[in-house]
Nucleic acid binder design. Structure first.
Length: 583
RNA sequence: GCGCUCGUAGCUCAGAUGGAUAGAGUGUUGGCCUCCGAAGCCAAAGGUCGUGGGUUCGACUCCCGCCGAGCGCGCCA
């Protein structure tokens, strides 16, 4: 309908141009928006306001001219000029009502589109270091990423969901060494656990498994372990302290044995994370190992390609990528003076690999604390010869947790955090998923745990689910009463009160809203749409009886109700939220 | 100091490419179940859109200054 109106305006403008009443070469961007008020019809365009200046005509006069040139269509009852020069379109109710039939016919596919034309798009999200279980801070990215992937898929993209596993690097070594030290404790050694080690209970669990299955295999003497180790904080340097311990662990155990402990810790936690996410309704198509990049020589390849393109120089014994040539604020080291490549070098190789895999678009969902990292990654893509615009980095702000009115400070290192699993068990899967995507990603969000726990029945998600359950209940009532119900051939023109007309109009906006939410990466748009739909439904429900003696009217109302239920279900499914038939 | 994300009702938040009278939820106050599910509906109240300028027919939206919040600014990951 919107497109039809768009065409109408375009045609009218063309005729006006041909009649030389307006200049012919105008850059026009016709805007047709859903009207906000029934008195303003169904759709409105501000075209006359926008063209007032370039044509030198008064907005209202121009609007009248445009309207006069518009062909008469039987799908549009009335076109009028209002306000400062808006053109309002009143769509024939029979035409509007067709949407109800359309929804019922399309069913679960209503709202789908081919907008993406099968374009390959990758969404990488969560990608938390496997140094501990996921906590509530990771939940937002998980829920958001999964929903965004659903949306993109729904509008016709071929979407691949990926988790980048940081299985190389210092943090993982600290974890491996933490596990080993706990293991030594279980072996009876007296261990002064490093302040910078990972202190969560899960570290003990992994150490216990290591001890149970391997007995004394990795047992070394505490005196040797602490030989030549820098003193821990507060007297010494806690960073140096842990690094020395890692060095000793590698030396005493040897490469293979050290790797065994390291991999046990890594694999255990990756599995914990995968199971947690699955329970949260979030599944990935691929878990990409950071370590595989160096194993397969991709980091070398990436650096060589940068060198070949002339974007690398040597200084102070290190290799630098001249990212300032591409807008970064300073150049970045890719290979240290000790010969080791940096984390950034891995990331360059990783992103190169993403595009080598043929993705037309790559979306990274990052915590907002990584925003300073964006320019250098984009710079590296440009330097490698890719269009950096095909990498879209979506930042997600942290959710501040509040409990008993106080902000909870969390730290993976200290083991003090609320896990995603705990949250899910507290407030329920549906509420947790819904809560996270209710708000715009860039918006700072307060997450009141007490409220989420104690008032979970007041969570907005129930408002939507309740509407769906009510609709199902009405259908059950009809069955119980043995009433004749034929929603597929209903006389939809009987839907003539204000509530019904508003609902019909709102149903017609779903597809467009889903597309907008997908392209703009804003799942909350769907949430808001559904809340409005549920609200209109509840109002209608309270104002009118559905199960009436008039069969024709009853069928019409049940058809509309069913269509609403269908759209609610489709929308909730996109967010990973269930649409219960009973509550 | 520089950069990024923000600042909208008591609180939590919506307000796409600038458009008509800035909206929900929650909280407060008052109504609605002999009637399809009251986890609902209706009504009232609540605002200098952080602030000061600018751009124009029109600014919550765009530009600049300032105030305030969070986060970044390593040969860490």
């Amino acid at each position: 309908m919107k497109q039809i109106i768009n065409d109408l305006i375009a045609q009218a403008l063309l005729e006006l141009a041909q009649a030389a009443q307006i200049p012919s070469e105008l850059s026009i961007n016709i805007q047709v928006t859903p009207a906000r008020d029934p008195g303003q019809g169904d759709f409105a365009s501000n075209i006359a306001l926008m063209l007032a200046k370039p044509t030198g005509l008064a907005p209202r006069a121009l609007a009248e001219m445009i309207v006069a040139k518009m062909p008469v269509l039987d799908t549009i009852n009335k076109i009028e000029v209002a306000g400062p020069g808006f053109i309002n379109f009143f769509v024939d109710s029979g035409t509007s009502h067709a949407i109800v039939q359309h929804v019922l016919e399309q069913g679960d596919d209503f709202g789908r589109s081919t907008l993406g034309q099968g374009g390959k798009i990758q969404v990488e999200f969560v990608s938390a270091n496997p140094t501990g279980p996921l906590h509530v801070g990771h939940g937002r990215g998980a829920a958001y990423g999964a929903t965004l992937a659903n949306l993109l898929s729904y509008v016709g993209f071929e979407v691949q969901k990926e988790y980048y596993v940081n299985d190389a690097g210092r943090q993982m070594h600290i974890l491996g060494t933490s596990v080993w030290l706990r293991y030594l404790d279980l072996c009876g050694e007296s261990i002064d656990f490093p302040s910078n080690g990972y202190q969560g209970d899960y570290v003990w669990d992994i150490a216990a498994t290591l001890h149970r299955e391997n007995a004394e295999r990795f047992h070394k003497d505490a005196a040797e372990i602490y030989a030549d180790v820098c003193e821990d904080a507060p007297a010494g340097d806690k960073e140096k302290h842990i690094d020395d311990l890692i060095d000793n662990a590698q030396r005493l155990l040897g490469e293979d044995e050290y790797r065994f402990v390291f991999d046990l810790a890594l694999n255990t936690l990756v599995k914990v994370i995968r199971v947690d996410l699955h329970a949260f309704g979030v599944d990935f198509d691929r878990w990409f190992s950071e370590r595989s990049l160096s194993d397969e020589g991709l980091i070398e390849q990436a650096i060589k390609r940068l060198q070949d393109n002339g974007h690398v120089y040597e200084q102070d014994g290190a290799l630098w990528f001249r990212s300032t040539d591409f807008g970064d604020e300073k150049d970045r080291v890719v290979c240290r003076d000790n010969g080791q490549t940096t984390y950034f070098a891995s990331d360059i190789a990783y992103h190169m690999n993403k595009f080598e895999r043929g993705f037309a678009k790559v979306i990274n969902i990052w915590g907002a604390d990584h925003h300073g990292y964006i320019p250098r990654v984009k710079a590296s893509l440009s330097a490698l010869g890719y269009d950096a615009d095909n990498l879209e980095i979506q930042l997600v702000q942290f959710a501040n947790l509040f409990e008993k009115g106080e902000k909870i400070s969390m730290s993976t290192r200290s083991g003090e955090f609320v896990t995603l699993k705990q949250l899910r068990e507290d407030v329920g899967q549906d509420a947790a998923r819904f809560f996270y995507v209710m708000r715009k990603a860039e918006q700072h969000m307060d997450f009141d745990l007490d409220l989420a726990r104690e008032q979970s029945n007041d969570n907005p998600v129930y408002y939507l689910q309740y509407a769906h359950a009510r609709i199902c209940s009405v259908r059950r009532q009809c069955e119980d009463k043995g009433l004749e119900v034929d929603i597929n051939n209903a006389s939809l023109t009987r839907l003539d009160n204000a509530h019904e007309q508003a609902l019909v109009k709102h149903l017609g906006l779903f597809s467009e809203r889903v597309e907008s939410a997908a392209l703009r990466h804003e799942p909350h748009q769907v949430v808001n749409y559904l809340r409005e739909l549920a609200n209109q439904f509840h109002s209608w429900y309270n104002a009118h009886q559905f199960i009436v003696d008039d069969v024709e009217l009853r069928n019409a109302r049940l058809a509309l109700a069913s269509a609403i239920g269908q759209v609610l279900g489709n929308g909730l499914k996109l967010m990973g939220v269930s649409a219960p038939e009973k509550m």
